[in-house]
Simulated scan of single mutants.
Amino acid sequence: MKANQTPLPQLIQAEKQAADIIFEARKRKRLLLNRAKNVAVKEVETYHGEREVILNALNESVQESIGITQRRVEQATKEKIAKIDAQVETNREAVVKMILKLMNDFVPEVHRNYLFLKDQKQK
């Protein structure tokens, strides 16, 4: 090779080789990224499925505890209502007699505020 002659064909060949190497590297990178993405999607789906199973189990246990609590509240309410009904039955006669006595045995009186208002008007 002479000093004034440039190695142009060798440079062109080197650039082609470099472009091929870069193209292959980018191709491998895309393949690896696609594989990693597919693996990640599968892992996410698996994790989602596991979480869904756990959520359903928790939901069932919560529903069971809510049902138990509702039954307890309903039972306590029924017991209280039965107790109140029993008290009503035992006190019914006494209350009726007391109301009749108040209706029949009344004493007419002037209300205490009437006298106060009458004194106020006179002043």
Rank of each mutant, 00 (worst) to 15 (best):
K37Y: 11
K37L: 11
K37H: 11
K37D: 08
K37C: 11
N38H: 10
N38L: 09
V39L: 04
V39Q: 07
V39D: 01
A40M: 03
A40H: 04
V41L: 15
V41Q: 15
V41N: 14
V41S: 14
V41P: 01
V41D: 15
V41T: 14
V41Y: 14
K42W: 11
K42T: 08
E43H: 05
E43L: 14
E43F: 04
E43I: 07
E43S: 09
V44C: 07
V44L: 14
V44K: 11
E45Y: 03
E45R: 11
E45A: 14
E45L: 15
T46H: 05
T46S: 15
T46P: 00
T46K: 15
T46Y: 03
Y47V: 10
Y47D: 13
Y47E: 14
H48L: 12
H48K: 11
H48I: 14
H48T: 09
H48V: 08
G49H: 01
G49R: 01
G49I: 02
G49V: 01
G49F: 01
E50F: 11
E50Y: 09
E50I: 12
E50G: 14
E50P: 03
R51V: 08
R51Y: 08
E52W: 08
V53F: 02
V53D: 01
V53E: 01
V53A: 09
V53R: 02
V53G: 03
I54P: 00
I54Y: 02
I54S: 03
I54R: 09
I54K: 13
L55K: 07
L55N: 05
L55Y: 01
L55Q: 01
N56R: 13
N56M: 12
A57W: 00
A57N: 02
A57K: 09
L58F: 03
L58K: 13
L58P: 00
N59Y: 07
N59Q: 09
E60L: 08
E60G: 04
E60H: 02
S61W: 00
S61L: 02
S61M: 06
S61P: 00
V62D: 10
V62M: 13
V62F: 13
V62E: 13
V62S: 09
V62N: 09
V62L: 15
Q63R: 10
Q63K: 10
E64Y: 02
E64C: 05
E64M: 04
E64D: 09
E64R: 03
S65T: 13
S65G: 06
S65R: 10
S65A: 10
S65E: 10
S65Q: 08
I66G: 02
I66S: 04
I66P: 00
I66V: 06
I66A: 06
G67E: 04
G67L: 05
G67C: 07
G67P: 00
G67T: 03
G67N: 11
I68L: 06
I68W: 06
T69H: 05
T69R: 05
T69G: 08
T69F: 05
T69L: 07
T69I: 07
Q70S: 05
Q70F: 07
Q70H: 06
Q70P: 01
Q70M: 06
R71L: 10
R71F: 06
R71N: 08
R71I: 05
R71A: 12
R71P: 00
R72L: 12
R72M: 08
R72Q: 08
R72H: 06
R72N: 08
V73K: 00
